[in-house]
Every structure is written in C-alpha cells, then in structure tokens.
Design a binder for these strands. Structure first.
Lengths: 257, 257
DNA sequence: CGGTATGTTCGACCATGCTGAACAGCGGTC
DNA sequence: GACCGCTGTTCAGCATGGTCGAACATACCG
C-alpha cells in the first residue's frame, strides 16, 4: 500500500462525503495528519484537476477531473453498455423505473437509470449509492457471491435506514437465502419508506455476479398480489438475457427456471 | 508536487482515456515507469476503490469509486444546483437542448444536461468534454477570463474537430472579442458538423466566470435569421439570473443590456 | 514442450514525503 | 487602529517510504 496515494484517496473521499468544501485544517483533523501534509497532497490533486480551491475562501472541493473519470467509468462499463437497451425495454414493458447497479464496498451503486415512461420530474440517480443490505439490487448481487465475501459483508455494521431495514446478520442471511432460492431479491421499504425494489443478479463470462438489474417504485404498486410475480419474472428474464450478452455460462449463477 | 500521487492520477487518466482496461505492462510503457512501480500504484488505487482488476484477464480498469466521486462533485456543484431549474425552464421555453458547462483544463465539461422536451432517444452528456475553443460554452467562459489565463489557453494547441473549427489564436481571439462584446458566444459547426451552440457565461460572487449555459442543436434551426436573436436573448437572460443566484455583482462580468 | 509475455514478489538503496516551527493574511472584536 | 485567533502556506532537516532491477509464477500459443 503506497501511503501517500492512500492519503490522497482519503482526501478525495472526505471531499466527496457531504460537505461541498473543506479547509486544510478541517481535513488534517479528520484524517489525523499534519496541515503541511494535507496541503501538499491537495496541491498535487489540484494540479491533476481532481480538486479545486475556492480562491475567496481558501477551501477545497472536488474538481471537474473526478466527473471526467466518473464519466469514463460509465463509458467503459460493459455491464452498463449491454444493459441499457434491455433496461429501456423493461421500463417500457413494466412502466416502472429500472436501475442497474454494481457493488461498491458495502453499498450498491446505480450505473444506469431508466426513467418510468411518461413520469414527470425525475431525478437521475446514476452514481447514487445505497447500502447493499437495504436494497434489492444489493441483495441480488451478494446472494450469489462466494461465502467468504458474504461473511465479510455481513461482519460490517448493517445500518438501519427505515424501521423495516433488516440489520441483524441472521435476518439478512434469510433474505439472501430467499434471493438465492428464487433468483430474485425483493425489498420492501428497507431503503425508503413507501418504496420497494425487485432485482436479479447479472453474471459475467466467469459466472461471477458483476451487477444487478431491478425495478424500484412505490411498494403498494410493485408488491401488489398480481404485480409482484409478473415483475419478478420480467426482471429475472432481463437479467438472464444481459448475463448471456456478457458471456455468462448457461444458467451460470442463475437458478434454472 | 508529490510524485506518487501525481503518478497515480496519471494512471487514472490513462485508464479513463479510451481503452476500457489496460495491463500493467502497457501502463508502464505509456507512463515511462517500471512495472513494479505501476503495480504498486494500481494495488493502492484498487484498495481505495478507484480501480478494479479483471481477475480473468489481469487487466485494470477504473473502479466504481470514481463514479461516486463524480457524483459527489455534481452534488456539490453550486453552479449546477442553481442552474438546474432555470435550465429546465429555458429548455421548455426554447424547445432546445440546454447544457451547463465548466472549464476543465483546455476543455469545457458538461455538468448539467436538460433534454429537449418531447425528443425521442437522447444521450445524457453530463461529464462529456469538448475543447473549449470549439464550443460556445467554452468560448463564453474564456471570453471573460483575465488576459493571462486567456493567453495561457491560446498558447496551447487548438485542435480542429471539423473543417469549420477555428484553430489560429488570432481567429479564436476574434471569436472571444465578439463574445465579450455581445455577452453571448455563438459557435457554428466547430465541434460537430451540423450542430451549433449559443452560450453565455455565468459569474460567481467575486465576479469571476465559473461556467456557462447555452443551447446546442442543429445549426440550421438555431442560427436561422429569426431564431438566433431570440435564443441569444433568452440564454443571456438566464445566465444573468443564475449569476445573480450565485451572488454575482450587478452586471458583474456581463455586458449591460 | 518450449518460448514468449504477462502480472507479481522481493529486497536494497536513496530520493522523496512528512512534519514541527514559523510566517503571512484575514476577519472579528474592542 | 491595534490586537487576537485562526487559517492556509512555506521551509528545511530527517527518516522512512517509494522505486526498480532481478527474479519468479502463470498463462497462452504454436
């Protein structure tokens, strides 16, 4: 581990978590480093375009270079490229919002967002992250990971976001077992009150889950007795098709129908 | 300048420019570094989530952490936050695509994209970059920068993207003078054949241009004799309103009407 | 099976990164 | 206007962390 690169990354992480800008002294305090150390790292990051300084206040913020990298990440994402058309078709077919996500540490991050056709004002959620355990997208991926990785994730704190969020490893394991058995994860108001999600994992050529695709929307609409099976089937079929596009082995990871 | 942080940033830059994934040997060659050096940097970046390795091929690619930072950059952008509603209104009023951009090195980067209402399939361009001199968004910002910064930008190569791209410092200075005089930059098929742009700068509380807002679309529609003055006025008015929202001094930077 | 090219590991060396101390500038208070 | 507190910035000495040559392990190809 190269210490100074790790420190620079932690600075970027701090600048990216909540406060739009931070001062040298504040960053030094948060990271437990000397001010000249932080200052030197910031200057280098600034020269690279990853950070910029507000001249008037002296405070630092993320720079446009990170957006450029984020965009490049999306452009290079094979999962996203291969999902987009099928996600659009799914959104049209089901008349629901469709998201594609990947696991990033203990969260699932949206890499593609297909709007519900005909809806009014919607906010693009690409780049947004949700704790994996509180979302169908996240549960769908983790359910198919190797045991060691699942254990690792379950050993970390499982934060409650609503009153319905499952936060004990036992309860989350149950949800994962169900997702594994059915091939589809269902989440009912664990991330947001009123919202639910249904998602299925997507596998790559090696048979490993690399992401998931799912619908998100009002729980009373998605989890209606007649809707849920239909939505689940459509999501699973789309996930399988994307997996095939990515070269996944037949039934690789997925439950046979 | 901290060398190892700079090297790490250059690795990210290489991974973000074209090829979706690169090997250690290829990166070492491009950067003129030893393979163990690159390997160590990649390992650290991987632990930070900014890079990930394809286990099957051994190659490295940008990781989800960069998308998270890109998203955080957008979330923290005051220019973007204060532009969004006015950009939407402008797109509705003019029935055109509206972009908001910021200068990033020698390019202008789209930080907000408002779709043309009613259009069919559109690609979100947030994060996309265009050479500043070949776009109205870029010219609108640079026209109001201090002379020293303008000179610096003009001393760099001015690449041609179409047959109409102005590439000599003299020609670009003329375009900048016109943008300065009128308060609005107009670009006719310099970035893309068939497309034009009309943009105005946005100023912050210190009176410095921090971005621009403009319309982009087919040249024959935007630059029609009756359209152009109407679009220019609406874009300029919107830019002024956003500048006021950002606390810019009255007529700060903008030309008085 | 041999050759080639890759990613990875190891350890010695020295160049770089780190930090305490000090300074410059700014805003607030009296 | 002087003083104080706090910030970002600079400097130089020192210790450590980063670099890289050499070697190795692995995979692929003919």
């Amino acid at each position: 581990m190269i210490q100074s690169v790790d420190r620079a990354a932690r600075i970027l992480h701090e600048l990216g978590s909540g406060s739009p800008s931070l001062g040298v002294t504040e960053l030094a305090s948060r990271l437990g480093l000397a001010k000249p150390t932080v200052h030197g790292l910031l200057r280098t990051l600034e020269q690279c375009g990853l950070v910029s300084q507000d001249i008037a206040t002296g405070r630092y913020a993320l720079g446009p270079g990170v957006l450029q990298l984020g965009n490049a990440y999306l452009a290079g994402s094979e999962l996203r490229a291969r999902s987009m058309l099928r996600a659009r078709a799914l959104a049209g077919q089901l008349d629901e919002v469709v998201w594609v996500g990947v696991l990033a540490e203990a969260e699932v991050m949206v890499v593609h967002h297909e709007f519900r056709p005909g809806d009014g004002v919607q906010i693009l959620e690409v780049g947004a992250t949700i704790p994996w355990h509180a979302s169908a997208l996240g549960q769908a991926i983790v359910a198919f990971l190797p045991d060691g990785e699942v254990d690792g994730l379950l050993s970390r704190p499982l934060r409650a976001l609503t009153g319905r969020t499952r936060t004990t490893p036992e309860a989350v394991r149950k949800a994962l077992a169900s997702a594994f058995d059915k091939g589809v994860a269902v989440e009912n108001q664990e991330a947001n009150v009123g919202d639910a999600g249904i998602a299925a994992p997507v596998f790559d050529h090696s048979g490993r889950p690399v992401g998931s695709i799912g619908v998100v929307g009002p729980a009373d609409r998605l989890l209606q007795r007649q809707s849920k099976p239909r939505l689940s089937r459509a999501v699973l079929d789309t996930a399988r098709a994307i997996s095939r596009d990515l070269g996944a082995p037949s039934h690789g990871g997925h439950r046979p129908s």
